[in-house]
Design a protein around this nucleic acid. Structure first.
Lengths: 200, 200
DNA sequence: TCTTTGTTTGACCAACTGGTCAAATCAACG
DNA sequence: CGTTGATTTGACCAGTTGGTCAAACAAAGA
């Protein structure tokens, strides 16, 4: 018997989630306050709690909505495609996500570094299953001699690490680099890395 | 006219720093409380503040003491050594640090992900200078044809990313992997990656 | 218009936080 | 032992935090 959300509900819920993404990705869960989020969303704190029952609820809503977006690039990896192209393509899409959704990346980074207290079950659930499936595909390519014999799990980790690094450690990258666009150099480099390690 | 620290001072300061490392690396700066740290150090909160003037002081003391340890592996890279061996060796040492000092790695990760508010100056100072120096060496090796023509900055980033990933995203790695020791597979994989991308 | 339902807010609260302070306790040395 | 300085603590404080609530306010249909 849940009623359909009104226009105002849609607008305010969206505003809160956007504000939450901004704040949580910058300060982590405990480092963020409801006042900050409310201010960023242009609402009063009680009004914010009219739409979400608690701080935790906003945070987990964000994380769960994000998980699918985050796994999409890996889902796309096609066992019937060209092995190198599929893997390089995945890495490429992941790098694009770091460029286009750095806040989302940092939100995840914050959560995982601190032990993933809110999404531990998703990690050993959906994520694990998906990785297992794709790792098997990669293993098959290796055995068929289409790519080098690399450990598929560590290959996937390396793609995560190499791409998310640019979003998660953005300040460090920018402190070291002169460029105002670190991704300009990151793209070709990532391409080189992936092709090199996959060459049979 | 600063007096030498007593036995008790040494012990308690060390205990506080260890406790601080434990707590800060798990919850970040804002997510950690003095009570937590005091409890972990086996001291009362006022006693803790007898040795350090503030929460901030403990945190920055930790970070600065850590920075040198953290940069040591890169310092060791020798321009007169064998190029591939030097770079692979650096990556190896960095991976060892992630294995042996995961809390330190996470402390840094927490700080950097949240914009490095406490050590921004160190990043654009010491770190930047060191990276610049080593990048020049790597560039030289590339030009001499001793290694492939890779962007030295992104090469260094890739080593940071690939090694720290195992410490910083430990829960994720363990959720996906079956092994109880992710580093067992990480070592050989990292070796393969580095040698592949450096092959001229 | 009235009424019902959805929305917003000011005032408030209890728990927690970083930090202070005076007084108590301890250690060491003459 | 007594004294001096180092160490420890209970009580306390002001500011912040997540969250509540009744009352005020808007929207919209009858």
């Amino acid at each position: 018997m849940t009623k359909p959300p009104t226009r105002i509900q849609k607008r305010n819920r969206a505003a809160i989630l956007t504000a939450g993404l901004d704040v949580f990705s910058q300060f982590g869960f405990r480092g963020s306050t409801l006042d900050q989020i409310a201010a960023a969303a242009g609402l009063s704190k009680p009004n914010l709690l009219y739409y979400f029952p608690s701080k935790d609820a906003i945070y987990t809503a964000l994380l769960e909505r994000l998980l699918e977006t985050w796994l999409a690039p890996l889902h796309q990896m096609d066992k019937d495609g060209d092995p190198v192209a599929e893997i390089v393509g995945y890495a490429r899409r992941k790098l694009d996500m770091s460029r286009d959704y750095p806040r989302e990346s940092r939100l995840f980074a914050n959560e995982i570094v601190q032990g993933a207290p809110h999404i531990a079950n998703h990690l050993s659930g959906e994520l694990r299953v998906l990785v297992e499936e794709k790792a098997a595909i990669i293993k098959g390519w290796s055995k068929a001699g289409q790519i080098a014999d690399v450990d598929p799990h560590h290959l996937i980790f390396s793609i995560w690490a190499l791409t998310q690094h640019y979003a998660d450690f953005d300040v460090q990258v920018r402190a070291v680099l002169d460029t105002d666009d670190p991704f300009a150099g990151a793209g070709p480099f990532l391409d080189h890395v992936m092709r090199s390690i996959l060459r049979p």
